[in-house]
Write a protein that binds this DNA or RNA. Structure first.
Lengths: 350, 350
DNA sequence: TTTGGCACTCGATGAGTGAGAGTGCTAATT
DNA sequence: AATTAGCACTCTCACTCATCGAGTGCCAAA
């Protein structure tokens, strides 16, 4: 399975060339650009070998070669070297991210925007899965008769809330009591162990509210808690894909943007990816071309990593770009954005 | 300025034809499709007149005519008849909107999605301008030391909140007192009359917290209040524009989607439109082609109307589509969605 | 194992062509 | 004065055809 050193060099060169020119690379231009010390015929033979092994493809009988998915995979796994960004690029990213003010949500959005702008591709962020995080506070706040705000505070300082309807004549005081009772009941429990029964237990009968009404409130509180682990996916910069030569055909572009519009689908796939790569947590997840099992992403690659919100709570951040991309550069861009994001989150959380 | 009846008929027919075929319409096909009782030569004369008057344009010397912006404007203002949707379409829209559960935000999103799907264009919603609505409640909720949630309740039952940082050693009780004091101070005031001074007045010195710390809390509360009237624009279905023949050239499509990606720009323009049309509140605002002063929307039209959240608080909902659209149909679609949305909002608010 | 040489393939480019749809104008008709 | 028939003209679109150039595969020689 391992390639001899020259084949590696050739594959490396071809990927580099193809990525930067977007044109099938032929034996001759390969010699011109890289200083190979052999004739074009020799390279042709090597290239034919690489093709048989599945690392290269020919678009037409008589065109140069382009990397196959397997070729990109080999490149990513063992050929490329990730080099750090230039000072300039670093500065730009830092500046952008630091410019965002205030809330966590804004910060993450800002990181995504920055990443999309830096790469020129679509950036993707996904809020952390919170199933395993535990509940530290639950408050129900009366807004007006019949309406209340349920505030759920989770470990890692995540705050979610939901506006709910409650029976009209429940009073401020009653809500306050219910809220305290629920809180006492489930504080410290991981989110995915909380059920409607856990929420309600040891609560009924203890107050002056009829069970049927109490149940309604309990249910709403429960729903609010459950909703807290809703995964929010944010895709930014889809329109940038249109400017890429890779998607200059209307058909491909339409299909891609259509798929990107369905962020639920992307979220689902992210989950799947994470399940597969559970081992190398904290590192990069990369999917190239047809490795992506979603419709319409044949010419794309996903690269994601995780950002940290403390207490082991992690979200995803990454890029969806053409599979013909400068992997090493994009990876270091993601990496740098991630680091900045982690830092800023730490600052927000103290 | 008014056209004689036959010219009106001709313009009407041309717009109809062009909208449905997307091909410049010529004198002959006009006779075939519509039962004009004159010869093609007569129509040619009429068409030449209409062109001189600015209602029609020729893409090339020897092609049929297409409506100019002015032509569409005339069509929209005085020629077309808005007809109600078919039962089927109505049912579909109703179903979609009713399927959305729970919160106001979800409901509006759902309305936008429905509208985009129904029209095949981009739908646009904009949260209400809240400057004129008044504050009914303000609560500050301690989340953990150094972190609090400011909940702002406005008239019409709008609830906004913001997570803020506060000095570490401020206690639950202190926050509670501050919160009450502020609330007492500014309840009932319109949002745009609230200043940092209003928030702070009559508060300092009354507590055991040093002024500098108190100021920090007050500022955060103030910022949370001010943020409540942030206009949220939501654009849905940009990708659908790619399927339209109007944007089948990559250049136009790229430009359009690029402009659509900047929702701040759209929000700003909406504001502008509203200022212009202040008179006919509650009705439709329509901008056609170059009437839109934004870059990149030359081939588009905006149609928006308002939805009601009670207490005179209104948001915008509408469509951005190709100017070559079935105006009467799209208007009734928007109208129907708006009606359903209004209804559902009423239900949510009781 | 490498290399030079050669025949072959295939896509891109550009020119030329004819068909088709539509126009504007003029002169005759109503 | 309005309408119509007729005709020359214009312009796009689709099609064909030839050519060019980059690249390949393979064979025989080094």
């Amino acid at each position: 399975m391992d390639l001899d050193p020259r084949k590696k060099e050739v594959l490396h060169a071809i990927v580099d060339d193809y990525v930067s020119t977007f044109e099938p690379v032929g034996s001759k231009s390969l010699i011109e650009r890289h200083g190979f010390d052999v004739s074009s015929a020799t390279l042709r033979n090597e290239m034919a070998d690489l093709e048989h092994m599945g690392f290269l493809e020919k678009p037409h009988t008589s065109a140069g070669r382009i990397p196959s998915d397997k070729g990109y995979r080999e490149y990513v796994d063992s050929l490329m070297k990730v080099e750090p960004l230039s000072r300039k690029e670093q500065a730009k990213i830092e500046e952008n991210i630091k410019a965002s003010v205030g809330e966590l949500g804004d910060l993450i959005k800002s990181a995504a925007d920055t990443l999309s702008q830096a790469t020129g591709f679509v950036s993707l962020t996904c809020s952390p899965r919170l199933k395993k995080s535990y509940l530290t506070q639950l408050k129900i706040l009366m807004i007006e008769p019949g309406k209340a705000l349920v505030v759920v505070v989770l470990s890692a300082g995540v705050v979610k809330d939901k506006l709910v309807r409650i029976p009209n004549f429940i009073t401020d005081k009653q809500i306050y009591d219910i809220s305290n009772a629920i809180e006492k009941n489930i504080t410290g429990k991981p989110l995915d162990e909380i059920t409607l029964i856990t929420v309600s237990s040891a609560l009924k009968g203890g107050s002056d509210i009829p069970d049927s009404l109490l149940n309604q409130v309990l249910y709403e509180a429960y729903a609010a808690i459950k909703q807290a682990d809703r995964m929010d996916v944010y895709l930014e910069g889809s329109h940038r894909m249109l400017s890429l030569p890779d998607f200059s055909s209307m058909g491909r572009a339409t299909q891609l943007l259509g798929s990107l519009a369905d962020d639920g689908m992307v979220a689902g796939y992210l989950n799947e990816m994470e399940a597969q790569d559970k081992s190398n947590q904290d590192s990069y997840m990369i999917r190239i071309g047809q490795e992506i099992t979603l419709e319409g992403f044949d010419d794309c690659s996903f690269i994601t990593t995780t950002y940290n919100m403390g207490d082991g709570v992690q979200g995803n951040i990454g890029v969806i770009g053409p599979k013909r991309m400068e992997y090493s550069k994009v990876i270091s861009q993601i990496d740098f954005v991630k680091k900045n994001l982690d830092e800023q989150i730490k600052i927000i959380n103290e």
